[in-house]
Design a protein around this nucleic acid. Structure first.
Lengths: 348, 348
DNA sequence: ATGAAAGCGCTAACAT
DNA sequence: ATGTTAGCGCTTTCAT
């Protein structure tokens, strides 16, 4: 069966896509010549280029990137792994990553996972798409998976995660340092009854923020008085966790929340339900600096993740790994900054 | 140059990907047999399957989806077009679309555009990836582009957009009806000085919401007293627009905002800056029902877009169009619902 | 500069 | 059930 015939038979499209062969025939040149017109840095005479482009126009030809990818063994697609999120932080992330990748001539294939287990099944499927690289946010890469990526030569950058494997690059915010800054801020302001509300217990970001906070307290001779766990990073569970916290006889006078959403939930519980004055009677500090943290009704003191820097660095590390496969494993840790607003007391 | 040789020369990978040929050789079967093992609904004997899988295991073979896509003329990739957003509504959207697509065995290639003009350049590039379909949110598809999609046989579903072309499917919320509901709600509560704060003027959603609102007011013998334009759908510009609105001598007693973020900005301006009591002195109604609208500190009355329904319907229409290319053009309009909360007065 | 031809990794028709 | 073979649309060598 000829190519032509088959295409017509199997085609349900109004007019089948033209291929380079069709263009070549119409232009009266070889198919290779057409290919050269569409490949940068290849020499074609002005004459053939004109003839080819005329035929291209007439047929509405568009190069088939899939075929090109097959022969060049490179798709210009980056797999972007994200996890079911409620946090605006992650929306921003997808936004920024997709745009930054596009600026580099790459496209983002999004892999959205519900649970960590699912990554074991679905990541290999994304690898089958021959992605040129992988950015993993909010999920844990098992060493089995990391090894599989390494074997297939697919560079991986973990975003705000720990590496379970020595072969994966990491770009993250210094969450531990963020926790330390909060500890200093609270202690400097003279707070005594300090609390921490955790987000997702299994996440490394949560662990680091808490560790930094608690360690710094200890260094200065203090202790964490209360600890509650929201369970995830949502407003609703932050609200609920704060509720539990304030059922105590002598509740905290300062709360460090694992992220801004939790902080906003806690703040609303305190001021709307319990009539506690923030920051006069209670200081609250969050983490992330999401847009709503700056809204007048919250005006939340928080630890800002240098978002743009993190994204840019991630892309840069990834691009380097793609272009230079033998490069060393990078671990980039970007410091956070305290954003002073009005939900926490100043120095005494 | 042999395939083997070439692969080694051009390879910077530690161990090059094994192909079906490699597996076949090791298993002592034909390459087609290996293919059959990985193709559903093809008969392979238990014996060869075992031999093949053993070789697969040993070589770490993974099917190359790009090659499969080339021959099957189908990638199982859907292009998801989004636009720079600040609205949590859109974050939710990407979230839901990517998951829903994955459940159907498809992957989302995200095209993130800054301006509409960019779509003219970048959408063709996505089409070159031979995507099986296209979901377009928050962007306008020119008729030139619509035609190009039609010609390449790529089905398109517009999400919450108007069609500029008769060949594209549409799934949208009945924004006009939403506006009408708000009009009724305000008039029933006895409000007299009604205002509208617009979002992005060029968006059809904005236009429809306003039209429905104003038309219904007129039907009941009332007029829109004030109109302000935020300029986009953000909290900040909503806040600023409300500020302009309240510089008037006799300001409104009820404001319909084009979306929830604008409404929250307006509400904060009113209650925090001007000490206006909501809803006693001012009713505010938004649109979308984003998560934060339900937070105690806002408790915003709003028009809920039936989000899950919209997403599901979009996927369904798209899948139908993919599997049944000759299907009729669908236009699905889903009604919104009023969510009563505490930012607007009840009936008198 | 150009054409001929090989090959990327795979599926599918055909024959056995 | 299995092997053989012909493509999918493209890039890239090799000759000319």
């Amino acid at each position: 069966m000829s190519a032509r015939k088959r295409r017509i038979l199997s085609s349900f499209k109004s007019s089948p896509d033209a291929s380079q062969i069709d263009v070549a025939r119409l232009a009266g040149v070889s198919q290779a010549a057409v290919s050269r017109v569409f490949t940068n840095g290849r020499s074609v005479s002005e004459d053939t280029r004109t003839k080819v482009m005329a035929a291209v126009e007439q047929l509405g030809y568009r190069p088939n990137v899939i075929a090109r990818s097959l022969v060049q063994n490179s798709t210009n697609i980056i797999g972007l792994v994200v996890k079911r999120f409620t946090n605006p932080f992650y929306a921003q992330m997808i936004q920024d990553f997709t745009r930054a990748l596009q600026e580099q001539g790459y496209w983002a294939l999004v892999l959205n996972i519900a649970e960590n287990q699912e990554l074991e099944d679905s990541l290999p499927m994304v690898l089958q798409y021959q992605v040129d690289g992988l950015i993993i946010t909010s999920a844990t890469l098992s060493s089995r998976l990391a090894e599989e990526c390494a074997r297939s030569g697919t560079p991986v950058v973990l975003f705000n995660r720990y590496a379970s494997d020595a072969s994966t690059h990491v770009v993250k915010c210094d969450n531990t340092e963020g926790g330390r800054i909060v500890a200093d801020t609270f202690l400097d302001a003279g707070h005594k009854r300090l609390a921490f509300i955790a987000g997702e217990e299994s996440s490394s970001t949560n662990r680091d923020r808490e560790t930094g906070f608690v360690d710094r307290l200890k260094e200065r001779g203090h202790n964490l008085a209360f600890r509650e766990s929201a369970g995830d990073y949502s407003y609703e569970l932050g609200y609920a966790a704060a509720q539990r916290l304030f059922q105590l006889d002598a509740p905290p006078d300062a709360i460090f929340c694992a992220n801004d959403l939790i902080a906003m939930g806690a703040m609303d519980l305190a001021r709307l339900k319990l009539n506690i004055k923030v920051p006069d009677e209670l200081s609250i500090i969050g983490f992330d600096d999401i847009p709503s943290a700056a809204w007048p009704s919250y005006d939340l003191t928080t630890i800002r993740q240098p978002f743009g820097k993190l994204v840019d660095a991630t892309i840069q590390v990834l691009m380097n790994a793609i272009n230079n496969p033998e490069c060393e494993v990078t671990e980039l840790i970007v410091p956070p900054t305290l954003i002073w607003r009005n939900s926490s007391r100043r120095k005494e």
